[in-house]
Design a binder for these strands. Structure first.
Length: 484
RNA sequence: GGCCCGUUGGUGAAGCGGUCAACACACCAGCCUUUCACGCUGGCAUUCAGGGGUUCGAAUCCCCUACGGGUCACCA
């Protein structure tokens, strides 16, 4: 039987790193096994569905390169691929359960249930739905029915029974039916709950492996109960460790401690292959002969991935390591690609078109210095300012005794260069000459020049910087510094 | 609180009964570059949450305790 796996998000918001990581760990295995990868939308919560969320998720998937074989925009033989389009498909299964006495109508209102819960809580008891409507007499039932009371449909959980499964990552996990109450499978608005829809969908779509976050581990017994009620073969289940924030807590949507949405990383200028690479390492590690490798192409990940090597404990998301991975990819990239990615940031910042060859030189200069593309803006400010701003530290440095001697000599030597000679190699020679003339070298020589022309005490290769700045600008800034 | 899952350095982790516990990020130091960054080299867990076992031998197997996390919805 061929492997079929799915990622089934609810369209409630942007694709976040936890979801993307789950999607990835499904994708890698499906691809490795030559199976199918399905994207399905779990949109049974009308109140929380958001119009643009699906598009956001699709965009995120496309950007990350997680191509799906079936699902939105792709179609497939097992469609449709969202619950709300599948509503009529669930109906017969609900009726079957009802007819077989494996499910029943529950007329308890949510207010009533809430009150019972409150009471239980006040008494320090833990509340579990007592099965009130399960034991209704025929009369009571018809009465409620006649009154037109709203109802949900609950699954009648059988008496004590072992509910265990062999988790792909954790091995044997066991619950008993005592642990689960008569849960709702159809809400009072007639829409199935997640538990119900997901198992019907997984079965109908012939999903072979259900891999999701650890928060679903305690939902698994409910789904197993459903598979058993229908006499269906269960898929393999697997539960991924949680991604934690720096405080060791599960990420919540509003957690401000880290950037957690995929589109935000895109906007900041992270490369999709870097995000994939980092996410893969969050919970998974390569085996022996690759144990020291940190950088993996998607193809390598597909080849090497295995659930046996997925960690069982939660992983703290480390933005610094992600940044490092991203920097590795930026450095290794074709400069042309980085230029194309960087150009929009610069043009937006300065609201004008910039000459491509000049930007190419600029970006190339900084390619090894940035960890994300957006940094190009901050780092290259000096090339866009009319005047250099000297901060206190710079001013102090420029006051040092030898500085004016150095700067005057530099100015003279650079001014002596013809316009067509004003290139990095010639500039280098000119500065070397200054060293001979003044006797100053190293830091004493370079720092004043850098500070005078850029206002910064650090930056990329000075000769290249001066060349790109242009002769007029450099001479003018040296002038400015000398008169400060 | 019940149930479930987990616990190797600040972080990601390797390790799967046998010399001094890989590697990477971060951090620190040095080298390189006539400057900064990049890069390179070195340092950074006498110890694997704690305590008991089992064993000639345990981070690795068993038990207990502690701690952390997840979940207990007409949300997914």
């Amino acid at each position: 039987m061929s492997v079929r796996m799915r990622f089934a998000p609810s369209p409630t918001g942007h694709l976040h790193i936890g979801g993307a990581r789950t999607a990835l760990f499904n994708y890698l295995f499906a691809k490795q096994q030559g199976g199918s990868y399905i994207l399905r939308i779990e949109d049974t919560d009308l109140a929380r569905n958001r119009e643009d969320a699906l598009q956001g998720i699709i965009d995120g998937f496309r950007w990350l390169g997680l191509d799906w074989d079936e699902g939105p925009e792709m179609g497939g033989d097992y469609g449709p691929y969202s619950c709300m389009e599948r509503l009529e498909l669930y109906q017969p299964f609900v009726e079957q359960l009802l007819a077989e006495g494996k499910a029943y109508k529950c007329y308890c209102s949510s207010e009533q249930l809430a009150t019972e819960k409150e009471a239980a809580k006040a008494e320090g008891r833990l509340y579990r739905y007592p099965g009130t409507c399960r034991h209704l007499t025929e009369d009571e039932r018809t009465y409620k029915e006649k009154a037109g009371a709203d109802y949900t449909i609950r699954f009648a959980v059988p008496a004590s029974d072992l509910l265990d499964f062999d988790d792909l990552i954790r091995g044997d996990v066991r619950f008993t039916t005592e642990d689960v109450e008569d849960f709702v499978i159809v809400k009072s608005d007639g829409i199935p709950t997640y538990h119900f829809a997901v198992t019907i969908d997984d079965h109908l779509m012939e999903i072979t492996h259900v891999v999701r976050g650890e928060e679903h581990i305690s939902n698994t017994p409910k789904q197993i109960l459903l598979y058993r009620a229908f006499g269906w073969e269960e898929p393999r289940f697997g539960h991924l460790p949680l991604i934690l924030n720096p405080n060791g807590k599960k990420l919540s949507k509003r957690d401000g401690s880290i950037i957690q949405f995929i589109d935000q990383y895109k906007e900041l200028g992270y490369l999709p292959e870097a995000v994939i690479n980092y996410l893969a390492l969050l919970g998974w590690s390569p085996s022996d002969e690759h144990s020291e490798q940190e950088l993996f192409t998607k193809e390598e990940l597909i080849e090497q991935f295995s659930y046996e090597r997925v960690n069982r404990s939660g992983a703290v998301f480390d933005p610094e390591k992600l940044a490092w991975v991203n920097a590795q990819y930026i450095k290794a990239s074709d400069p042309q690609r980085i230029v194309e990615l960087a150009l929009p940031y610069l043009e937006k910042e300065y609201d004008r078109k910039l000459p491509l060859d000049w930007v190419t030189s600029l970006v190339t200069l900084y390619q090894t210095a940035i960890q994300a593309i957006h940094e190009i803006v901050d780092v290259s400010r000096i090339f866009f300012q009319d005047q250099v701003e000297y901060n206190e530290e710079a001013k102090k440095l420029l006051q040092e005794e030898h500085v004016s001697i150095v700067l005057q000599a530099v100015r003279a030597n650079l001014a002596a260069l013809g316009t067509d000679e004003y290139l990095a190699p010639q500039i280098k020679k000119a500065i070397r000459k200054v060293q001979k003339e003044t006797g100053y070298r190293g830091k004493q020589l370079f720092l004043p020049v850098r500070v005078a022309t850029t206002g910064e005490s650090k930056g990329p290769d000075l000769n290249e910087t001066l060349a790109l700045l242009g002769q007029d600008t450099v001479l003018q800034r040296l002038e400015q510094a000398l008169s400060t």
